[in-house]
């Protein structure tokens, strides 16, 4: 951890700020949310790494998708993601957002979340232990350091692809596109 290095702070204040102040909004979609309270409270204390629960998507920059995503919860997930301010990082928590997990043949569960919103990192497991959240956070630090956590840029660049996929599952979306200028051009 290079949180104490003043020289690095002066050189890259932007990167360091985003690294050590991750305010998480966690979407209580499934069982994964059970692992969040011990992470935030006395047992594991995520605050020592600067990870705080944020009250609203506007204030957050880390999006934790905890557990399976049903078709009905995909809509608020997309809305929440679009409400967050850039730069924003997404982490899929548990095996269900990765490939469906135990709901691989369910009629009502989204199988791969990264077809609908970009995901920066995955935490595999069913359930992952709270420690794995910290491993994910340290990996995310490394990615931010190298400039590899580019999910939000991917979303902007391929907005038409993502929006088409969302509309394919959810029908016509009732909010205007986030990047209207990207909707016209073909980026397939």
């Amino acid at each position: 951890m290079d949180r104490g290095k003043i020289s690095k702070w002066l050189k890259y204040p932007e990167k360091m700020g985003h690294k050590y102040s991750l305010w998480a909004i966690y979407f209580a979609t499934g069982c994964g949310i059970m692992e969040i309270p011990p992470v935030l409270t006395s047992r594991w204390d995520a605050e020592r790494f600067g990870v705080l629960p944020a009250a609203t998507p506007r204030q957050a920059n880390l999006f934790l998708i905890t557990g399976y995503v049903s078709v009905k919860t995909l809509r608020p997930i997309v809305r929440t993601y679009e409400l967050m301010r850039e730069p924003k990082y997404t982490v899929g928590f548990g095996s269900c957002p990765i490939n469906g997990g135990m709901y691989w043949d369910s009629y009502n569960t989204i199988k791969r979340v990264d077809k609908y919103i970009p995901i920066d990192g995955w935490i595999a497991g069913c359930m992952p232990r709270p420690e794995s959240i910290f491993i994910a956070v340290t990996k995310l630090w490394m990615m931010i350091d190298k400039g590899a956590a580019t999910g939000y840029i991917r979303y902007r660049e391929n907005y038409r692809y993502y929006r088409e996929n969302q509309e394919r599952i959810l029908g016509k979306l009732d909010w205007p596109p986030l990047y209207p200028e990207k909707m016209g051009e073909d980026n397939g």
């Binding site: 204040p13 932007e14 360091m16 700020g17 305010w23 600067g50």
Partner: peptide, 13 residues
């Protein structure tokens, strides 16, 4: 930590 948070917030869109 509050200073870190403020630096981050100023760099956020």
């Amino acid at each position: 930590q509050p200073i870190i948070d403020m630096i981050k917030l100023f760099y956020q869109k």
